[in-house]
Amino acid sequence: MAEVFAAGSIEEVVAFLAGHRGVSLPIAGGTDVMVDKRNGRVHPEWLVDLTSLEALAGIEFREGGKVVRIGSMTRIRSLELDPVLGRRAAALVEAARLLGSVQIRTMATVGGNLCHGTPSAEMPPPLLVHDADCEVAGPSGRRVMPLVDLFAGPGRTVLEPDELLVALELRLPDSGVGSCYLRQTVRWSMDLAGVGVAAAVEVDGSTVTKARVALGAVAPVPLLVAEAANALVGTELDAGAAAEAGRRAAAACSPITDARGTESYRRQVVAVLVERAARIAWLRATGSWPAGVPAPANGVLPSEVR
């Protein structure tokens, strides 16, 4: 049995974690912690309840909407239903709506999804392609780092036991930006990604000026693959460029063989999904994709509407 510490402020949380290193565990939505606790994967003496910290929750647009700050305790369901993010960070909203069930999304938080460190987690790829930074509070104050540096391995982050993820900051260009999240699963819902892929492009006219490609579930940590993105920059995102990005992403990842697919299969699927996600991101960036309409999970439209 664990005791519960209900923190009143971020500083109190950090102080409590510092005073109970190794025996305390922050709990946000609980959808991972409660399972881990029941399975005996974690044995905290203290659960540090973050739900009363309003400072950690919320989606806030700043700098005339060019930057969005997402509190770490923001529920996945809130991301899913946010209309502005739906238009300007489509990959993030697509990933949110594929995560678990309505019930899980109502409970689970973006910070919890990131800090649990699951390689197949839904949130990292779209946040990585939207160039997220994360703000961390610790005993010596706040620090900001690129999200890509947060992940340390399966189930692990670089955070110290007395550090807390406070918020994410994403830059959202005004226009000419598009993104997409796709994944391969066994079931079409309520599943974990065998391969998760996000792509984002910024387009000037019809030329890609910036691109990012991120992968989940195909390495010990979520990956940002610059080589794949570079294959898109300067192109008009023709089929050849998309395929080249897919090939480079497949070469860059290091998947394993497990119950959810073989190593070689996952590489093949990375190539396919990166190609499709890049194309859909480009369609969005160029206004050729209906606003607010999510892509099918594997990026293939049902054939009657294709």
């Binding site: 079931r187 079409w188 974990l192």
Partner: peptide, 28 residues
């Protein structure tokens, strides 16, 4: 037909839980 299987490695059911098993949801 499409999803359900108890995947077994060396005699051990690898992931004895409902999401890895693959029972269809209303979407499937």
């Amino acid at each position: 037909a499409l999803s359900e299987e108890l995947v077994i490695f060396d005699g051990e059911i690898v992931a004895p839980n409902l999401h890895d098993y693959g029972m269809p949801t209303a979407v499937d």
